[in-house]
Every structure is written in structure tokens, then in C-alpha cells.
């Protein structure tokens, strides 16, 4: 059945209002302790069915004038009411901490680490933790203990990935009521560009991009050629071989002695868009990192001096991820 457009719009605006309200009510924080201010509670479907059962019992009691059936109905009504407190208590005094996520490449899943710790000397059972609007995963926090969960989120674009609200819900102990909260744990992680699938890093150079080659590509014994692949810098195309009527070939930079290299924005192909240029640079960084080479990165407005090692790689990738005006990591 198709919903009329107006109804759908109404649904959207109601949802937006609700989200805005929750955002106001539970502001972002890395660590949240669950209490009156941020726990909501509402009967589940089972809860409404239970209320219907109570009504049926009450009618039976009235019609058969049976005080014991009344008593049973009232006992179960009391159970429901007490259940509100127990369901709330199961969630209350839980300390939820967002530990953030490791940086990932675009297209991969970022794993945000959320820690649930008991701050009220009680067991928190039957918890369901997940992103707002998604199925959650089960969790259980023992008395005075903690549990760490990883919530995965697909990173589609480079840059900052902001984690959505985390929903923690529990229908324990009776399943008739659900207590839930929706927390913004101020979690975000850096998403590196997805590395290009092809394109070799530029040759080592001493400063300028027009540095002399160490080998003469013209000599026959020179093995540093390979077939041209799309994405190879035009600068490395061996025009001489093309002139001889052979296939289009480029210099294989691995054939060159490695010294410090510069990965430059200007070395990437002209004519392609920003993202594919970043992807190419990303590929180069990973390649050189794998080789253990020393490299520098030069982007418009940002230069990394040549170095090697994990820190250099992380810095370089972060610079690429946040290229184009995204604020640097806090």
C-alpha cells in the first residue's frame, strides 16, 4: 500500500521533530551515565497485550463476581507497575563511554568501541545496543563490571565519519516494557580515501619534479620499463619506445634507487577530479609505506616533510582524508 505523499511528509517531519527533541534532551557527550534525564520507557507490544489480558481478567472477575480473579488481575497490574521501576533500574546507573574508532579507508566498516560499565552495583541484563534505527546486539553487564562492544558503521566517504546516536534498550525483566535511551557519544573517526587501484608513485627525486633519471631508458639492458597502465603519470611515459613503434611504456619506479621521494598534488593527473587524485596519492603512500621508504607529501596548503614509519603514514593519510577544508583532528 502506498502512503500518500502528504502522510509521508508528515511522518518525516514528526521524525525530525523527535530527533531534534532528543538532541536537545540528550546532548552529545563522550561519557554518559544513564538516569532519569535520558532514559525513556514505554510498553512494548507484549505490554499492550498484557494490559488486554488484565482487562479480560477484570471482566471475568466482574462477571463471575470472583474476588480471587480480581486479586489475580490486581497482582498482575501491580507486577506491571513494579515492572516499570525494574525495567528502568536495569538501564539506570549504567555508564556508557564512547571510545571512538580506528581510522578506516572509505568503503570499509568503522568499528566504534562503546563501553558499558555498571555504576550502580547491579546487574544490567538483556541489553540491546546498536545504532539508532538498526538492530542491536545483545549485551550483559555484570555487577560492578563492564562490557565493551564494537558497533560497526560503513564509511562511504573520506573525511570525518560522525557516528550516529547509539540506542541502548532493554525489555528486561518482563518484556512488557522497554526502557531505552539514544546517546550521542560524540564519536567520530577519520576515513582515509579509498586507495586507487592503479598508478605508481613518482620516481625518487631530489627536490624538483624534473630531476634527472639515474638510468638511461634508451639503453637496451635497462629493465625498468613496464607496460603503461591507466593512471601512470604522463611524465614517466617512455616516449622513445613509443617513437620506435613499440607499446606505450612507462618507467618502473621500483627500478630506481630509493631515496626520499615527494608525493605531490601536482604529480597527480590533471583532468581527473579531486577524489581520484587523493585516491592516487593514498595508493602511493601505502605503497611507499609497504616498502619502508621515506617520503614527503605536498598538498595545497599542507606539506609533510619526508620521513618514514607508521606515524608518517598516519599523518599523510589523515592529511589526505581531511583535504579540502575539513578541520584537523582534535
Amino acid at each position: 500500500m502506498r502512503q500518500p505523499a502528504q502522510l509521508r511528509r508528515l511522518g518525516h517531519s514528526v521524525r525530525a521533530l523527535r530527533e531534534a527533541w532528543i538532541a536537545r534532551r540528550i546532548p552529545a557527550a563522550r561519557e554518559v551515565r544513564l538516569d532519569r534525564g535520558n532514559i525513556f520507557i514505554f510498553p512494548t507490544g507484549s505490554g499492550f497485550a498484557f494490559l488486554a489480558l488484565l482487562l479480560a481478567l477484570l471482566l471475568t472477575g466482574i462477571n463471575y463476581e470472583s474476588n480471587l480473579v480480581f486479586a489475580l488481575a490486581f497482582l498482575l497490574a501491580g507486577l506491571f507497575v513494579v515492572g516499570v521501576l525494574h525495567t528502568y533500574a536495569n538501564l539506570a546507573q549504567l555508564r556508557v563511554t564512547g571510545a571512538g574508532a580506528e581510522a578506516v579507508f572509505a568503503g570499509a566498516e568503522a568499528g566504534f568501541v562503546v563501553q558499558l560499565a555498571d555504576a550502580g552495583r547491579r546487574v544490567h541484563d538483556g541489553l540491546l545496543v546498536g545504532w539508532e534505527g538498526n538492530e542491536g546486539q545483545g549485551a550483559h553487564v555484570p555487577h560492578d563490571g563492564a562490557q565493551t562492544l564494537t558497533l560497526f558503521l560503513r564509511a562511504s566517504h573520506r573525511g570525518w565519519l560522525r557516528a550516529p546516536r547509539v540506542r541502548i534498550a532493554s525489555a528486561y525483566p518482563l518484556g512488557l516494557l522497554r526502557a531505552w535511551t539514544s546517546l550521542d557519544l560524540a564519536q567520530r573517526c577519520v576515513v582515509y580515501p579509498r586507495p586507487a587501484t592503479a598508478g605508481d608513485a613518482p620516481l625518487a627525486s631530489r627536490g624538483g619534479d624534473e630531476g634527472p633519471l639515474t638510468h638511461d631508458p634508451g639503453s637496451e639492458d635497462f629493465a625498468g620499463f613496464r607496460d603503461y597502465r591507466s593512471g601512470d603519470p604522463l611524465r614517466h611515459v617512455v616516449w622513445k619506445t613509443l617513437a620506435r613503434g613499440q607499446r606505450l611504456q612507462t618507467l618502473d619506479q621500483r627500478a630506481f634507487a630509493d631515496r626520499s621521494r615527494w608525493l605531490r598534488w601536482s604529480d597527480t593527473e590533471w583532468g581527473t577530479d579531486v577524489e581520484s587524485r587523493l585516491a592516487l596519492l593514498c595508493r602511493w603512500v601505502l605503497e611507499l609505506q609497504a616498502q619502508g621508504s621515506e617520503y614527503g607529501l605536498e598538498l595545497p596548503g599542507c606539506t609533510l616533510q619526508p620521513a618514514s614509519g607508521d606515524a608518517q603514514c598516519e599523518q599523510a593519510l589523515t592529511a589526505l582524508a581531511l583535504f579540502g577544508g575539513q578541520e584537523p583532528p582534535a
Partner: peptide, 24 residues
């Protein structure tokens, strides 16, 4: 534990709930 905690509410409702004639 929960049912024992519900007992006071049961007693209260039992005493107070109006005893009306059968509805049908």
C-alpha cells in the same frame, strides 16, 4: 521479588476497586 513488591498495589486495588454488578 517483583510479585512481592506488587502485593501492596494488589491489596490497595482489591480494597478500592468498585464491586459492580456483572456487566452481562
Amino acid at each position: 521479588r517483583m510479585l512481592l513488591q506488587a502485593v501492596p498495589i494488589m491489596l490497595l486495588l482489591f480494597v478500592v476497586f468498585p464491586r459492580i454488578a456483572p456487566l452481562w
